[in-house]
Design a protein around this nucleic acid. Sequence first.
DNA 1: TACGATAATGATAATCATTATTGTTTTAGG
DNA 2: CCTAAAACAATAATGATTATCATTATCGTA
Lengths: 157, 157
Amino acid sequence: MSTLEHTLPGHPHMTRAAPKDPTTPLRHSRQRESIRQFLATTREHPTADLVYQHMKVEFPNISLATVYRNLNLLTDIGEAIRITPPDSADRFDGNTMPHNHFYCTRCKCILDLDLDMEEIEPLYQAASANFDGIIESSNTFFFGLCGNCVKTASELV
Amino acid sequence: MSTLEHTLPGHPHMTRAAPKDPTTPLRHSRQRESIRQFLATTREHPTADLVYQHMKVEFPNISLATVYRNLNLLTDIGEAIRITPPDSADRFDGNTMPHNHFYCTRCKCILDLDLDMEEIEPLYQAASANFDGIIESSNTFFFGLCGNCVKTASELV
DNA sequence: TACGATAATGATAATCATTATTGTTTTAGG
DNA sequence: CCTAAAACAATAATGATTATCATTATCGTA
């Protein structure tokens, strides 16, 4: 396992939404379990609001706050990854294996990139070299047009 | 010049704040000039609000909207870079030379990283390889503790 | 030098994403 | 069962950013 596999997953800001005392174990909740499940199966990198819409099927009166609470919680405990695009709401990804993301500037979809994380390792090393702090993780984001948008754009000519 | 030097600067979302017709040249404005100047000289990667505070010295009744408008405009025309941290307001950087950023998860400062952009090129190539869209730019963000925070943290023991 | 078209501004309302608050319901251990 | 507190739903509040609109500044031209 590379160093990166330890350090890359998730954005590192803590917003624990549950027990005051972080040593007390989490209690079970059907809502959280369902959110976790949904993230585990979808590849759509949904926003909090999309997760909310989806949860309403099973829990007609779930609260948006509950969705946020649990997305933050899952992110904090490393069971989800938060993705922060420059111009829209955060997305969440249940796939915590280190991987990279692509952001389509036209349709604003987020796609996984099939890019070996080993590629990033030297970058990480190089960055740590002449830096007097401690680099704990890195995150590479790619921008451009997704396949669909390229097709659509060419049809518009 | 590498491909990257063309594509890396700035986040690629357009929010033009000025002329309806983008072919008409920009008019001069003292506020915009001052904002541009401030970005050019500072290394602090200020938020819109910090720019606003700074501008108020010279323009006591400048509007925050004007600051946002011009920061967006400068970003659009490639004279500034927008940096979007995962948990706080956007920062702006007048240095449009391709470079990377470090984000301190403790004090939330943003620092430039002395990392040769050549390091990133292979990553960019690799990402483009098996991807059916068009990758136009990439952005690598590093997280961790800055030098000051490392020092402070060790003193607290 | 004044004039007119419109870009740019200041003031502020509106929007959007997210977090905080509060009272109620669930969970899980005794 | 009973109870403490975790988790919830509902919703108010916050923070960042954008939209609106009436006024002012810029700049080419009369």
